[in-house]
Structure formats: structure tokens, C-alpha cells
Design a protein around this nucleic acid. Structure first.
Length: 258
DNA sequence: ATGGTGGACAATCCA
């Protein structure tokens, strides 16, 4: 089983990068964030024409998540409160692949530490833990949580921890909010296989030569409940799509399971 | 150094 995540920063701008990557890597499921398109304008026919199933929940201009898969996912659900029509609906989409639940989230970024958007971020994390508790039992269920989580949990997850701290994605409150969800029952698949510093998934457009100079962040994550984590065999960052014209500011992250 | 770039969408908002 191969599962991947990619913040595409507009699926319509990045469609050929995504379709080419799917063809080359043949994942079972690819989770997308920041599709930035209302559902009626999502390019579903392009995915279907290339032989992929796709489930999506978005809104105009901002946010938006999707799950691309080789076979249709079962029991697809979107939103923290499914159907509330608000912003929270376009930040979560989940579905069942075999006996594994794939839970794709685009966590709020938070803007500034003193912004209401940061409070909304912390609240969103708390609501998400509640969402998990209501649906799954970490010891029984196979759950893979992945996506743009907008948290760099440790010093080796940012390129310059001393100067970046505190930041909405690298501060104690955000790390605690992330840890509280991890404590529900997740293992960090990425760090299981890539424990050393220097692996990043996001490079700010505004820093020139960010990839070459290693000025990155690890804010895109894959985490799994214990039995599923024990089955994971590899995890890697794929920088190849960044050599394309107009790359996303995020990388693909891929995990394989036995 | 509090900038810088990029996307959506039409003046700014968001990251």
C-alpha cells in the first residue's frame, strides 16, 4: 500500500504536475490540500480520464481538500461537522481504503500569534481530536492521518529554530495542540524512517533558493495508529516535481506499507 | 532587514 500527501496550492494550477506524479508513482491514495476551488469547478473529469477516482470538498479561492485513489474510497466524509457549509468543511476529507481509514486535513495556518486565526487553529486541533474520538478507537482501528498540519513539532523540523521561534507553526501552543492529537494514538511515520535533520516538506516562495539552501520546514505529515505504523516500510520526500515549471511551495511526501 | 513570491480574484486576503 502506497499513500502520499501534497499541498498543491491550487489544483487547477498544478493539475499536470499531479497527474504526471500519479502516473509515475502509482499510489493507492494521494491526499491533496489547498485545492482552492469550489466543488462545481473541481477538475474531476481530468482525473477520471487518467484512470483515477477522486473525492473532494472545497470552496472558492481558499482551502479545499481531495483524495485521489486507484479504487473508489468507501464511506467518504468531509468536514469537522459534515455539511455545515462553513470553512471547516473544506479542511478535512476522509475515506476508507480496504480496512484503513485515510484522514486528510488542511489545518489552519494561524496568520499571527495574536490573531483570532491562531485561536481558530488551536480550536481546530481540539475539535479534530474530538472528531477522531467519536469515530475510531486507536487500538482497534487502522487510521492514517496525513496532510498539511501547519506545525513543525521539533527543532529539526525548521531550518533555523532559534530565529523562527515563536511562529504560528513553530511555537509551544501549536506544538501542544498537535501533540494532543498525536497522543490520541498516532505514530509519526516520517520520523520513524527519516530521523535525521534536513528533511523538509515546505519551502517559502519568498525565500530565494529555499530548496538549495535548505531553508525549509516539515509541516506536512503522515501519522498512523500503532499496528498500521508497524507495517510502514518507507517514507520519503519527493522533490522531483519541484524541478517542474511553477512548482508548489510544498513537496510530495510518500509512505509505503507492507 | 519585517521584506520577499505566488494563487485567487478583482481590492485585498491568505499562506
Amino acid at each position: 500500500m502506497r499513500i502520499a500527501t501534497f499541498n498543491c496550492n491550487s489544483i487547477r494550477q498544478r493539475l499536470s504536475i499531479v497527474l504526471d506524479w500519479l502516473e509515475a508513482n502509482r499510489p493507492d491514495v494521494l491526499a491533496l490540500q489547498e485545492t482552492k476551488v469550489a466543488d462545481e469547478l473541481f477538475p474531476a473529469t481530468d482525473f477520471m480520464a487518467a484512470g483515477w477516482e477522486v473525492a473532494f470538498r472545497g470552496q472558492k479561492a481558499y482551502n479545499g481538500v481531495a483524495l485521489v485513489s486507484r479504487e473508489p474510497l468507501q464511506e467518504v466524509t468531509a468536514g469537522l461537522r459534515d455539511g455545515d457549509g462553513g470553512e471547516s468543511d473544506s479542511r478535512l476529507i476522509a475515506g476508507c481504503f480496504g480496512d484503513t481509514w485515510i484522514v486528510n486535513t488542511y489545518i489552519p495556518q494561524g496568520a499571527d500569534l495574536d490573531s483570532p486565526k491562531f485561536a481558530f487553529k488551536l480550536e481546530w486541533y481540539a475539535r479534530f481530536r474530538n472528531w477522531l474520538e467519536q469515530r475510531f478507537a486507536p487500538r482497534q482501528d487502522s487510521v492514517l492521518w496525513l496532510g498539511d498540519l501547519n506545525v513543525a513539532p521539533t527543532d529539526i523540523d525548521v531550518y533555523a529554530p532559534k530565529t523562527i521561534w515563536p511562529h504560528v507553526c513553530f511555537c509551544q501552543e501549536a506544538i501542544d495542540a498537535w501533540q494532543n492529537v498525536v497522543d490520541w494514538g498516532f505514530t509519526d511515520i516520517f520520523r520513524k524512517h527519516l530521523p535525521e535533520p534536513g528533511h523538509f516538506t515546505y519551502f517559502d516562495y519568498r525565500l530565494r533558493g529555499g530548496v538549495e539552501s535548505g531553508k525549509g520546514w516539515r509541516i506536512d505529515h503522515l501519522l498512523a495508529t500503532a499496528a498500521l505504523a508497524a507495517r510502514s516500510s518507507t517514507c520519503r520526500v519527493d522533490l522531483e516535481p519541484r524541478r517542474r515549471e511553477k512548482p508548489s511551495d510544498h513537496t510530495f511526501v510518500v509512505a509505503d506499507f507492507d
